[in-house]
Amino acid sequence: MASEDSLPVLKILVIGPSGAGKSSLLLRYCDDQFDPESSTATIGIDFKTKKLAVHGKGYRLNIFDTAGQERYRTLSTSYYRGAHGVIVVYDISNRKSFLSLDRWIEEARSNASENAVIYLVGTKLDKVAPGGTRAVSLEEAKAFAASQEAGYCEVSAKTRTNIKQPFVDVVGEIVQRPQLLSGELAKRTASSPLDLNAGGSQASSSYCSC
């Protein structure tokens, strides 16, 4: 496709506790694959791309998949620079995973740019489907997301349920924020997305709902 190269590039970071299913989510969304038997823990970061059209306009997503273990956070912080959106992933069948979200969202707020879109995704919907045990109710998760002014969606990489939704929502929200797409930031994104010295914008408190 001739116009492929000219599509605006959006940078999305995927974070969240270990084992939540970040890589599985991306593997299903970007490559339509699901193979729990050959999954491995992410060491450092992984990189994926995907084209996506929202409101009739095409975008190229550069998606950075991060390691979930706390020890790797120091490495992950350098990837926030220039990120248009941060997707925070947790496992709806695991209460502990949900309880860690405060820290992850705080992490995103303090490292990502002020206007970056933050979005919450609950994974492993298939596990709780009929008769399974949910560790977090839909209402509770929604209320939490709302309190963080973040969008929310529950997905299953196994069954493909809602697998596109988070990305459509995030891109839809990003394009609502002209500051995010301003030439300056977009340029920086393309040219120095991995700047090690990126301290990240600290001005994040104004974003909070309270």
């Binding site: 890589s23 593997l27 970007c30 694959q33 050959s38 999954s39 491995t40 990189f47 994926k48």
Partner: peptide, 10 residues
């Protein structure tokens, strides 16, 4: 992307 190591089987 080319084969990712996590998809070791494929």
């Amino acid at each position: 992307a080319p084969d990712s190591p996590r998809k070791s089987r494929s």
